[in-house]
Design a protein around this nucleic acid. Structure first.
Length: 250
DNA sequence: AAGTAATACAACCGCGCGCTG
DNA sequence: GCAGCGCGCGGTTGTATTACT
């Protein structure tokens, strides 16, 4: 479908934001909240495109942003999440309060990629470097890596394929609702439902199609990121996957 | 001190998706 | 059912800063 430009480019500023523009934007959002980004610039007296205002607010001006260096813990969480989610920066950001998708994306490209390469790990596949077969088997995004991660016959690339159900948001929409909730100042995690469940192969000791929450693979315990009972083995929880051991790769 | 390369990060761009009339 | 709109995402670019020669 055809799309009109998001704004009158001829009458908008571009490039770095000035202090005055920042102040105007912050003052307006404090007074009126985050409403319609398209009409915000005019209402706030800014010669900027709505998209630009949104980006500036989300990535730089939001009061709940955590500035400063990433901690080692955050590094590891990003690496683990990227191994499973791929370049779903907004999803990853949803797990790191105070961090933005743009910030994480930049950090990944400038720091973590190099860190993984130094460890001898391919940052795209999260496999040891030089594993051509591994790379061939797992090209591109993490969803395509799922078969290597899980049972090849029944693993569901949930992120790519799942449609949201009335009961649970999922896939990319989950990402959007997650990021939306952050932008509106609501608590980030409580409503988060990544819904990264996969179907398991029928096996002697596992119920068929039992959902498995991948938060357990991330080393998260119940309540840290989602409502599953990942650390409670048995019928109440999920017991089929465990976090990676030292030296294991996805 | 000057020039160049590398790095970090803010911002832009194009596209896909959901919503609405 | 269709078309347009608005939002949000991920990839890319531009620019400022820092490190190195």
């Amino acid at each position: 479908m055809g799309r009109s430009p998001c704004c009158e480019k001829a009458h908008t500023n571009k490039g770095a934001w000035t202090k005055e523009e920042d102040e105007r934007l912050v003052a307006y959002i404090r007074a009126h909240g985050e409403g319609c980004w398209r009409s915000l610039p005019k209402a706030a007296g800014l010669l900027r495109c709505g998209k630009s205002c949104r980006l500036r607010w989300m990535n730089y001006l939001r009061p709940d942003l955590k500035r400063g260096n990433f901690t080692d813990d955050e590094d590891e969480v990003i690496i683990r999440l990227h191994a499973i989610l791929g370049n779903k920066w907004s999803l990853i950001a949803g797990q790191l309060p105070g961090r933005t998708d743009n910030e994480i994306k930049n950090y990944w490209n400038t720091h973590i990629k190099r860190k993984l390469l130094a460890r001898g790990i391919d940052p795209q596949t999260h496999r040891p470097l030089g594993s051509a077969a591994a790379a061939a088997a797992a090209p591109g995004v993490a969803a395509h890596r799922a078969p290597a991660l899980l049972h090849p016959a029944t693993a569901v690339p949930a992120l790519a394929a799942a449609k949201p159900s009335p009961a649970a948001s999922s896939s990319d929409d989950g990402a959007r609702s997650s990021s939306t909730s952050t932008s509106t100042g609501k608590a980030r995690c409580p409503d988060l439902n990544l819904d990264l469940s996969v179907g398991l192969p029928p096996a002697a000791d596992t119920p068929s199609s039992q959902p498995v929450c991948l938060c357990y693979r991330l080393g998260l315990r119940a309540g840290e990121a989602c409502g599953c009972q990942a650390d409670k083995p048995g019928p109440q929880g999920f017991r089929y996957f465990r976090p990676l051991e030292q030296g294991q790769y996805i």
